[in-house]
């Protein structure tokens, strides 16, 4: 039964056995391709297994889900250094802390330091661990170390 598969999937996630988690998620999806939890688990497990190519192709080949996979898609594009496409994927996203953080990292890699720093300034009130490390990197790279 599907409950047993999810119990197994959950156990693999808890043990950080991400490749096995992908296999179990695939078992669920083979009988129910529209199972959103299984699809989300598969994509996240692929990312955490550092299999970015498969994570992206899974997102792109999947049918429409209620869950918005755009952040995960943008993250995969960022990891592949497809920076323009990554920013494009985030364009329609609400500016929540996760989206702003990813945008600032993309802008940093694109060398757009002032825009990058602007997002870090907006993020300061969000209390994100270690944010200041990237903020300082942006300021230094923008030639604004004195700030």
């Amino acid at each position: 039964p599907i409950e047993d598969l999810f119990t197994s999937l959950n156990r693999h996630i808890e043990r950080s056995e991400f490749e096995q988690a992908v296999k179990v998620a695939d078992q669920v999806l083979s009988t129910n391709p529209s199972d959103e939890d299984a699809m989300r688990c598969k994509v996240v497990a692929l990312i955490k297994a550092d299999n970015i190519d498969d994570a992206l192709s899974t997102i792109q080949s999947s049918q429409k889900f209620t869950f918005d996979f755009n952040y995960l898609k943008a993250y995969c594009l960022y990891r592949q250094n497809r920076l323009d496409e990554a920013l494009e994927a985030l364009k329609i996203q609400e500016n929540n802390p996760a989206t702003m953080l990813l945008k600032s990292q993309i802008l940093y890699r694109s060398g757009e330091m002032d825009a990058c720093v602007e997002f870090y300034q907006k993020l300061q009130k969000s209390k994100i661990d270690s944010l200041e490390i990237n903020f300082v990197a942006g300021l230094i790279s923008a030639g604004r170390a004195s700030e």
Partner: peptide, 21 residues
């Protein structure tokens, strides 16, 4: 080059499977 962390990664999480087991 200054050190930059992949903080966006920390926002990637599994859904809760609590009510699926």
């Amino acid at each position: 080059n200054p050190i930059v962390l992949d903080l966006a990664y920390n926002f990637i999480d599994f859904p809760s499977l609590e009510n699926r087991m």
